[in-house]
Write a protein that binds this DNA or RNA. Structure first.
Lengths: 241, 241
DNA sequence: CGAATAGTGTCTCTGAGACAGTATTTT
DNA sequence: AAAATACTGTCTCAGAGACACTATTCG
């Protein structure tokens, strides 16, 4: 990594152009069957009034801690959120003021109430991903990277369970795939498949209190299983193969 | 990302603790059937004398450009190397001198001569990944991340072709999978599979000049095809399913 | 010649997807 | 009753893996 000539003990960091390091978070959830992303409205220039991903400076903490802290500040506490590093965006000029390295994180959240504006954010709100464009800075690209990661990740990991409540039905889980992929898997085959993948879901023995709103039997309730990867994977129908 | 209160127009970056930003590169190649990684020997403290991943400071350039530039400086020019961002390592204390954000890159290189020590590196050399441990800083973890990425990536992309010459035989391609995965796919099934995946390889019409060293027919020569993803994928035999 | 290897044939088993059918619950 | 939905049965086809076989070329 750091080479000898450039980074001697006597090296003075202040002799180099300053670089700011931030984390920006693509937080996804599903509301009314639609994939939503958490955005904040910028109050200051540049890009005042535009929507942006929540984020902030990295302090004396790990990057993961920084992401978790920022997310908690924006939305109130988030106990069971899945967080993972996505990619780092640091091209010159992405922020007009100075060089900013943004370490993007991806978060999968279950359905939550409206975000509590506890932190810095002037106004944080959920926005359907279809209508989230024209974001500040290069956040359109960061969001796109997060969406693609999420779509790929629920294929071979049980992370779709991070979008639903602790106990859920197979139909609710299917709703996650429908919302994230933008297309509905075949209900019957999906059902059998989910139950056949070892460790994906665990039966609770309970069922829902009533059937669907427009009829239908009560469904069994499941919990997330202990598998960390899905074998075999659930592959997206499209993505021309 | 950057919030209003913390990053006003009058914000003074020098008021914050300085952060250095580097790129570190996991460069993989195959030498004599063994997966090797490019390492440099550190001349200065900390970790003087230990091996480390090559890398250096990010200048006024994109992160991809920084990685490509550093790699060229360490190894002489690299025309057809595949480079991709891996992850960012920036926990406090990973460098004892100051906060250093390292944006790790992964490079797939065809077999190359010994690296030309054109750049900063005191001594750069290829090291079999099996024997590459005890690296400086947190480079063991970065290397591990690179290896796992490489192993997964050749499953569903044609990037294994980045490890071989422009024209190659199926057996050479199989050697790539053997070296990267650490286990040999079944020769006959591998052969048929590679030819059956659309766009993985393209027939050149030519064959090798002679058969194997210990006998066997001449093999056909192929070039990389135009596929960017492999359908269906080549899955690792192990990785208990 | 004997050994090694390229490339192909074939069989079995798993799993994906299409489709249909049954049971249960709603309005 | 009619509609909706949970869940299951069954068929077909693609593909993975095991194994065997032929053809070619080396020492």
């Amino acid at each position: 990594m750091v080479t000898e000539r450039e980074f001697l003990d006597g090296y003075d960091p202040r002799a180099y152009p300053a670089v700011a390091v931030t984390v920006d978070i693509v937080t996804l959830t599903i509301r009314d069957g639609v994939l939503n992303v958490l955005l904040v409205e910028r109050g200051e220039q540049p890009h005042a009034g535009r929507l942006a991903l929540p984020g902030g400076f990295v302090r004396e903490e790990t990057l993961d801690q920084a992401a978790r802290r920022e997310l908690a500040e924006e939305t109130g506490i988030l106990p069971r959120v899945h967080l993972e590093q996505l990619a780092t965006f640091g091209d010159p000029g992405r922020d007009p003021r100075m060089r900013v390295m943004s370490i993007a994180y991806l978060a999968f959240a279950p359905h939550l109430p409206e975000p509590t504006v506890g932190g810095d954010a002037a106004a944080a709100r959920w926005v359907p991903v279809d209508t989230a464009s024209g974001l500040a800075f290069d956040h359109d690209a960061i969001l796109a990277a997060g969406l693609e990661r999420a779509r790929a990740k629920i294929e071979y990991t049980p992370l779709a369970t991070a979008f639903v409540d602790d106990e859920f039905t197979i139909a609710q889980l299917r709703g996650v795939y429908t919302a994230v992929w933008g297309e509905e898997p075949h209900a019957g085959n999906f059902h059998r498949k989910v139950l056949s993948v070892p460790g994906f879901v665990a039966d609770t023995g309970a069922t829902t209190q009533r059937g669907g709103e427009r009829g239908g039997p009560r469904s069994k309730l499941y919990r997330a299983g202990d598998a960390r990867i899905l074998h075999p994977a659930l592959l997206r129908p499209s993505l021309e193969r």
